[in-house]
Amino acid sequence: MFSEIKNRFATDDVEVKRKGLYKVVVKHERLFALIVMLKEMYDYKTLNTITCTDWIEEGHFALTYIMTTLKRNETFMLQTMILREEAHTKSLSYLFKQAQIMERDLHEMYGIKFEGNENLKELSLENWVHTPPLRREFDTLEFVNNHLTFRDGRDDNIDTKAESKRLRAIKKAEKEAAKKAKESKKAEDVQ
């Protein structure tokens, strides 16, 4: 199977992450043929999920389709790259019904357009007009500062990490002082 994938789809070797978990990176235009092949010939009947990673530095999204076969308990991860600018790809909903809602999610969060998916309306946001929120150029903190009001009193909040460090140091010092005092007392008693 692996050699066939390598030969027919001109990819790198199939990477075996561990037993029953394989990963392959394919070119975008050959992705769907590979998915069909896996589904029809190798019993990968389940599409678990579609994930997306934003490689903003390299200018593309990495879409990962995770498919499983229950027959042999194996999982296949197919990764493909698409350009960030006007990101678009074909929908998989004609092959897997569940792909529709996954694609809806990706469309909403990354702005990827899936051609052929009829139901690309918003899933968990409502009337969202700004940058898709999971794109890395979307600065959450800046957005919050611009759009929402904070309650007063957050300004004097303390860095909990530093604070706890400081407190721990104080406690430690106290403990040591107590220990020292005890020891000196002991010494006095002995004397």
Partner: peptide, 19 residues
């Protein structure tokens, strides 16, 4: 509901309910 709590920097959650 008081000040956003642990979602204080979330783009999708309001911070001050009384507004």
């Amino acid at each position: 509901t008081v000040n956003g709590g642990m979602y204080w920097d979330s783009y999708n959650t309001i911070k001050k309910l009384e507004d």
